[in-house]
């Protein structure tokens, strides 16, 4: 956790400096004679200073516990990726972002949703080294869930809630 805290601290220091810089750049509306303490940059700057203080404490605290020795090797990355939990996490993220970020809006909504649900079930339940019958059973289950989900969600949002689907 010390390494993660060190990296988070560094990111937050950079973020707070960026916020302070941007707050300084915001207009002060002198030509409109507005009160100088009501200008838009005041509150972001205030928040930037507080986050900067917390970030510095986080960095100092993590350095004290050795968090600044951030060693990232190919071996450690391979070790992280070899864990089944992390593999499932990565697959979930890829399939989900692929569906919501790229498929939705590019192909008909019902088709995108059906494909996503089918792919999700098939990828995570794909049995290894079993009979053809079991493959068929899995395909059928994934197919039925995909069709039912896609049809119900499309109908509910389009006809019931009058949403123009993407």
């Amino acid at each position: 956790m010390a390494k993660a805290d060190f990296l988070t601290g560094i990111v937050l220091v950079l973020l707070s400096i960026f916020i302070l810089f941007e707050s300084w750049r915001m207009p002060r509306f002198e030509h409109l004679k507005v009160h100088p303490l009501s200008v838009p940059g005041i509150v972001p700057a205030f928040l930037g200073i507080i986050i900067f203080i917390f970030a510095v404490i986080l960095v100092v605290r993590s350095i004290r516990t050795g968090g600044h020795h951030v060693g990232v090797s190919r071996e450690s990355l391979r070790h992280i990726l070899s864990r089944p939990g992390n593999q499932r996490l990565l697959l979930t993220a890829i399939i989900s972002i692929g569906y919501a970020g790229f498929l939705v809006g590019r192909i008909p909504y019902w088709l995108a949703t059906g494909l996503f649900v089918f792919a999700f079930v098939a990828v995570f339940e794909w049995p290894r080294g079993v009979t053809r019958r079991e493959y068929v059973r899995l395909g059928l289950a994934a197919g039925i869930l995909a069709v039912v989900t896609s049809a119900l969600v499309t109908w509910a949002f389009q006809s019931l809630f009058l949403v123009t689907l993407p």
Binding site: A100, F116, V117, F120, A141, L145, T149, V153
Partner: peptide, 12 residues
């Protein structure tokens, strides 16, 4: 594995 895709469809 059957619940989470439906949940994510609703999230989106």
């Amino acid at each position: 594995t059957r619940l989470m895709p439906v949940v994510f469809v609703l999230c989106a």
